[in-house]
Write a protein that binds this DNA or RNA. Structure first.
Lengths: 339, 339
DNA sequence: GTGAAAGCGCTAACAA
DNA sequence: TTGTTAGCGCTTTCAC
């Protein structure tokens, strides 16, 4: 395997010259540059990143910690992040952790052992404290969420997210506009300090604004984000509350499980129960009826995350926060209530 | 950030001694071992993998090239692979490529630039040649498939797979046993030199054994593995061949898209069309009706892949090939044909 | 514009 | 059992 030494010998120049050429440093004559470049090609030179990293005292790796990777919502985002990293000359180091685990301590370990230059956290908690985040040891970016419940200084990290509360408000509002008032909400936990809690607030606010009192029997917590739990919780809901006519799910995957539960209970969507969710995963285009959902721009989310973080790492920009909008993807799961 | 040098100074020993302790080499006295170990802890020492890799002329990374990562079938496998790598002290380097691209040349590049120690290919072609594989430069493992159409020496690589042909045979046979004879098959391409072609053969054989002539109008190729293409091809099938009564899909995701097409065409599963597939993704538990499928042991597949490859890399065993069995996961998409 | 040389943190002979 | 030392491939001063 060819090294810059080989190239240097081949061209009768010093290794430092080769290094300069390979790194696009200015002070090299066009002649030597060409010579070196073609030699590199001839010798099938591939840079040794360990050596480069060691000399640099850093890697060109960005860590990606995904919390709850079972959720198909993350798949296209991960893809976009990997691709964008590659485009920018970084490499991505992926680590998936179960939904319940702590992404911050996991991230901190990774940054140390792999000398990561930056970190993207996908699907984490919204309540980081300055103290815990200080252990991270590298610039980080919250992807698909932000620090709503925490006390972080906005200039100390970046984020790409949707406005969970506003979007949830919109979802609930759409159901209300269809005449529904017995609207259940399906979520992880109303105290998860994360996505569920934020979206739950939007739901509550929409109900309040419409003069509909909050009905705790319609708040369906599942404790985790699994489809299994969502299915079982929906079954229970239908048993306990035959008066329910609509359901807002904080995630597409959970909505799909709910649809199955409804069907297994002998009811139909949207005749008996209307459903709306937030996410926009591919699979929800293929349910019957098609799931009505507020689709997040998944690929864009991943791209933006990398773009912003890389700019921070390269010193080209400081931390920033991007809010993306969802798009209503009308399906067939919402019906007008005919009393 | 502490280095072994710091530890050496702290303990008044040589760096090589520290290195020995940290790498569990035998010839160290218990005293120095303890001294070094506690110093490492006190100094919050974290090994610098770039330096280690450079000295070793290798990384402890296993590359994972996933072809067609949109397929939800791969998600649990990737998770299992990552976890198993970690358990064995390796780190995983993930690279996702589109379904049509060449995993071998991609893998070769990766091995070079990242000095990967081994490679797992997930969802690749079945027809590697000795020549192309020789460019890989590292031991590799085919996960979820094997080299059925190629000319590779069985001792030169490993694989973990199901018997595609036999499982497809079984799927088709199950439909035949229910009285079906107009059985369509939904696949990528019958000449893809990969999963579709293998499973297609099993389908053909089952029909032949049952005395049912092959009907080319029932062979639905989609050119790619996307749900979109599967949906459209199924729509066309239903238009062209109203006599079809059953469908065998080579993948769960495509089957789910087909179910949507059938429903959109005003038909019902299984009353009008029976469906069976191979894969066993989580989502197919939540279709209505539940998809009947031959479920692959996804997590086990990933674990086995790592286990075998790591044994090869560590010199503990030579290459091997594991065949896993699917499990029939009965759903509600298969019905008996009442003529 | 180019070369010589030191050093990044770690491993692995070879000596002692 | 331990220490000395020469690299691994690359980057980066500092001379020339």
């Amino acid at each position: 395997m060819a090294t810059i030494k080989d190239i240097a010998a081949y061209c009768n120049v010093a290794v430092s010259t080769v290094s300069r050429v390979l790194n696009n440093h200015p002070d090299v004559s066009a002649d030597t540059r060409d010579k070196v470049l073609s030699a590199a090609r001839n010798l099938h030179y591939v840079p040794n990143s360990s050596a480069r990293d060691l000399a640099h005292q850093q890697t060109d790796s960005i860590g990606l910690v995904v919390r709850g990777a079972e959720n198909p919502f993350f798949t296209p985002i991960i893809r976009a992040i990997e691709r964008s990293c590659e485009d920018k000359g970084y490499s991505m180091s992926l680590h998936q952790i179960p939904a319940g685990e702590d992404e911050v301590s996991e991230g901190a370990k990774l940054v140390q052992s792999k000398r990561l230059k930056g970190l993207i956290l996908l699907g984490g908690r919204y309540d980081y404290t300055r103290e815990e985040v200080s252990t991270l040891g590298a610039p980080f970016m919250c992807c698909s969420y932000t620090n709503h419940f925490g006390n972080l200084d906005r200039t100390s990290f970046s984020s790409v997210s949707i406005n969970d509360k506003a979007e949830a408000y919109r979802a609930a509002e759409l159901l209300i506009e269809c005449g529904h008032s017995k609207i259940a909400v399906l979520l992880d936990s109303i105290h998860d300090r994360s996505i569920s809690e934020r979206r739950y607030r939007g739901y509550c606010e929409a109900l309040a604004d419409a003069g509909i009192p909050l009905d705790e029997g319609l708040v369906c917590e599942t404790v985790d984000f699994s489809m299994k739990a969502a299915y079982e919780r929906t079954i229970r809901l239908l048993e306990e509350r035959p008066d329910v006519t609509a359901l807002f799910s904080v995630a597409d995957s959970m909505a799909i499980a709910a649809m199955k539960a409804i069907s297994d209970a002998g009811l139909s969507v949207p005749q008996d129960i209307s459903i709306i969710a937030i996410d926009g995963i591919e699979m929800s285009l293929y349910t019957t009826p098609t799931l009505t959902t507020l689709a997040q721009p998944q690929a864009l989310m991943g791209e933006k995350a990398v773009e912003i973080l890389v700019d921070v790492l390269d010193g080209k920009a400081s931390h920033s926060h991007v809010r993306l909008e969802t798009t209503l993807r009308p399906g067939g799961t919402m019906g007008r209530l005919h009393p």
